[in-house]
Write a protein that binds this DNA or RNA. Sequence first.
DNA 1: AGGGTATGTTGACAGTGTCAAGATAATTCA
DNA 2: TGAATTATCTTGACACTGTCAACATACCCT
Lengths: 209, 209
Amino acid sequence: MMSENGHSYHHGDLQATLVRVASERIRQHGIDSLSLRKLAEDAGVSRSAPYHHFKDKNALLSAVAAKGFSDWHDKAKHIFGDKTASAPVRFRQFVHAYIQWAADNPQLYELMFGRTLWQSGNATEELKSVAYPSFQFQVEMTRFWQQQGVLCSTQDPLRLAQVTWGTLHGIARLVIDGVYANSSHLKEMCDCAADVFIQAGVSVPSDQT
Amino acid sequence: MMSENGHSYHHGDLQATLVRVASERIRQHGIDSLSLRKLAEDAGVSRSAPYHHFKDKNALLSAVAAKGFSDWHDKAKHIFGDKTASAPVRFRQFVHAYIQWAADNPQLYELMFGRTLWQSGNATEELKSVAYPSFQFQVEMTRFWQQQGVLCSTQDPLRLAQVTWGTLHGIARLVIDGVYANSSHLKEMCDCAADVFIQAGVSVPSDQT
DNA sequence: AGGGTATGTTGACAGTGTCAAGATAATTCA
DNA sequence: TGAATTATCTTGACACTGTCAACATACCCT
């Protein structure tokens, strides 16, 4: 039964609405200032209604992060699968795309890879099942680039993947967390990182982004 | 005038005591679970006494972080100034020491380099005055290692410093934040990172830590 | 001695996440 | 169909939090 203000006693699709509204609030105001109560108000629902769809605040944040992972994973696959560019060029493109995506979605990135969800086993099973394949993909890409001679082939793929990902993650975090007050030279930093990793002798026109 | 329970109405050195107790609580229980009220109770003082020594919670955390910076800076200078080891060996040692220090002081590291203090200009002037020289030192070391042929000399020292530091920071964060559930291969990761950065042709016995 | 300042205390306020108990709607089943 | 079960939503409540105003005490300097 519809009430006069346009929604029934039962919201209909509160679960999805909460994730959507939460994502938007996080994008605009960050994670810290996100309160379940304001969120519920935004969704036009009372303060403890969300608890019928999410165990607690942590579970809701996990759902938001999970969506972020699948979005990023799609993007990464798209870049990696672009057959029109050479392997070294695609590596450089990937470096730029990673940092750019992080810089474009700072709050979401922080949620996805920050301590809020991962420390002390807070991560939901659903989140893990989405995130781990994304981590694994990083290793697969690394192995491919090693085979192509783009990255050093004598290193263990897993270790090298951890280091390359660590580098991207570190730069992203320093920028996002505001430690680098000046983020105007992001592109140059990306190119420098790519230069360091790409094996000598590989031809890489640096003007291709 | 001393009361019977052993402390006067005026605490005597509450400022230093608060920083000390806060550091200890942070080390043991993390930043999130630190409340000013419990902290005050630990220091044997009422809940709003700290406000006579710190503008707000943020200022107190800044003081804790500042102490962390000076501690780390001392350690870094010590390693870098060790004249008994060759330049490449010292670089490798620095990599290991950085990650090890971060892994040994996870909560403090997170406070020092995390968004809590740096995002949206929360950092105290005092904190900045301690942190910035520490950042600058990273650039000086990088320049030195470039001159010694350990690191690629064709890169801009500032950019390369950002990338090398970014790498260390990224690995540290991934481990600290619990994204790498398994941190048992830290040493191998450090060696892999050092291998990638150290220029080919430089002799580096990897068994020296 | 007395006034000013530094420091400490209690009371209060608005905010938070979370739960229990009760209300309402949808769904399932006899 | 009607009744019972289940899903969903609401209000009340609790224990927290950071922070401020008002007041109390102790120290310091003239």
